[in-house]
Design a protein around this nucleic acid. Structure first.
Length: 488
RNA sequence: GCCCCCAUCGUCUAGAGGCCUAGGACACGAGCUUUUCAAGCUCGGUACACCAGUUCGAAUCUGGUUGGGGGCACCA
């Protein structure tokens, strides 16, 4: 394999606390593109803003990425030939490159205070002029600049954007995009604290790390010409760009907190499966071109291509996610669901109760088609784990009549005669009783269901009875008769 | 205000000039099935933003309008 031409992509989040679902999709597309093309997936941490650093964010980011199944090939903790992979460890590199631009007249020092810049912008807003740096620092003579530097006046390094030219690039998703250089701001490259801005750091790193394809969100589209300029100034090859459509809130603005959950970990803790989240997020902007909907990460690796990524933003719609979660959950082998159910029980109020595998497996068998989340086993069929402590009032009103207790007594008498009953035995016993009492089957079935489960919905009644077992069924019916007779 | 991007059902989308009286999925409604609830199956409604143009023919190409979004920091 020719390593010179190998595809190298990166996911470059800033460690502001958690992994955003939009970030997850960007990471996913990068990952898929790398895997599909036998390339390398790099994780780089963009922490050049010291004011935004959040303790533990990097670890959290890595952990969430791994949970989702997006293993990177090079990055922090893991290392690699192009490291370090944390920008704050690469400061000297950026300063060196800034110096180079300075020497070649492609960048310049500026000494304006934040207040001065504020004032400038206010004026520009008033005159409705484009908001950009007015280059007042260019009026300074070489001596003045040297004096200020020597005196230790805080300085930034700004990009010297050429006048009246066109900066263009070919975006893999959007085609050719052109900007007039007059629209481009003389961006700060090096801040007065010596740290680079995103624009400098990202270009220097992408080049030094051999990144061939920059796949990132559309919010970067309008700063891309600055990056292109930098590549040109350094004499470097410009990578391929692919600007992904944005993920949107229901009101179509850029997906943000305040309008629902945006952290991957929020969805994780709500019980969403990684498979469902990956599947869902992959389809926000991409589709295989046919009518398949269910994809595993492996499937996506086989099928993914940037050509099939759309251009318009997509609203993050949780209903479909729920459906996908349901679909992925029911496709999982029972043993895997068992492990997840055990984990869930361990963290619930049922933690001290003991259930054997066979029992839980039969619950899974009965509820399999009825749960969207693992927690639904408990939330929708808590009666498998605990005798009902209340009875659904609506069902009670509809199904529990004054003469119900005596019918049920007759029924459990019949049940008590059964030896090692199977599902069918409960059924035939109930049928016998119904016939001898001249009742419709449902006149027994519904109150019995209520008595043993406390609710009116769920798996087949005989499945419930069988799973609960003869003794437990008996106990519950007796207890229901006692408690409900008092009410009527 | 300036620059850039985008535009098919409520939502995710298929569609790369005739296969489109626009297909699928989620959601929604109706029915079937059934001891209930689901699942499943069947059926149903709802979309090419608008206006010109090109063409024998436009959701698909071009231009404009409108609408939406993003960017315009010593944040990423």
């Amino acid at each position: 394999m020719n390593t010179e031409n190998a595809v190298r992509v990166r996911f470059a989040p800033s460690p502001t606390g958690y992994l955003h679902v939009g970030g997850l999709r960007t990471a996913l597309y990068n990952y898929l593109f790398a895997r599909k093309n036998n390339g390398v997936f790099v994780l780089r941490i963009e922490d050049t803003d010291r004011t935004r650093y959040v303790e533990g964010a990097v670890e959290n980011l890595i952990q969430t990425l791994r949970w989702a199944g997006l293993e990177f090939d090079e990055g922090p903790e893991k290392g690699g030939p192009k490291g370090p992979y944390i920008q704050s460890d690469r400061i000297a590199l950026y300063q060196e490159h800034a110096r180079r631009l300075l020497e070649e007249g492609k960048a310049y020092y500026a000494f304006d205070t934040p207040e001065e810049l504020d004032e400038m912008r206010k004026l520009q807003e008033k005159t409705q002029a484009p908001l950009k740096y007015d280059r007042r620092a260019l009026m300074l003579s070489a001596q003045e600049v040297q004096q200020k530097l020597a005196a230790g006046v805080p300085a930034v390094v700004r990009l010297r954007v050429p006048d009246a030219t066109t900066v263009a690039f070919d975006d893999l998703i959007r085609g050719r995009v052109e900007f007039s250089s007059d629209q481009i701001d003389d961006q700060v490259l090096l801040k007065s604290d010596g740290y680079p801005t995103y624009h400098l750091a990202n270009v220097v790193d992408d080049h030094l790390m051999g990144i061939t394809h920059v796949i990132r969100g559309e919010e970067w589209l309008s700063s891309t010409p600055k990056h292109v300029l930098l590549y040109q100034y350094f004499g470097w090859e410009v990578p391929q760009f692919a600007h992904l459509p944005l993920l949107l809130n229901p009101d179509k603005s850029k997906l943000s907190k305040r309008q629902g959950d945006v952290a991957v970990e929020d969805y994780r803790s709500k019980g969403y499966l990684r498979e469902a989240i990956i599947n869902f997020v992959a389809f926000l902007g991409w589709n295989p071109g046919d009518e398949r909907e269910m994809f595993t990460l492996e499937d996506l690796v086989k099928e993914f291509s940037l050509e099939r990524v759309g251009k318009s933003g997509a609203i993050f719609n949780v209903e479909k996610l729920d459906w996908l979660n349901f679909q992925h959950l029911r496709r999982k082998p029972d043993t895997e669901v068992l492990a997840m159910l055990r984990e869930h029980l361990k963290q619930s109020s049922l933690a001290n109760r003991n259930f054997d595998d066979a029992y839980l497996l039969s619950v899974i068998g009965a509820m399999g088609e009825r749960v969207t989340f693992v927690r639904d086993f408990v939330e929708k069929s808590g009666y498998f784990f605990q005798a009902p402590n209340r009875y659904d009032p609506d069902v009670l009103k509809k199904r529990w009549k004054p003469d119900t207790p005596q019918k049920l007594r007759r029924l459990i008498e019949e049940f008590s005669l059964l030896e090692n009953p199977q599902r069918e035995d409960y059924e035939s016993a109930l049928l016998r009783v119904a016939r001898s009492l001249e009742l419709k089957n449902s006149e027994l079935i519904h109150p019995l269901r209520l008595a043993v489960s406390g609710v009116g919905a769920g798996p087949g009644l005989y499945d419930i009875l069988f799973i609960l077992g003869k003794e437990e069924t008996h106990r519950r019916v007796v207890s229901a008769i006692e408690r409900l007779s008092q009410l009527t």
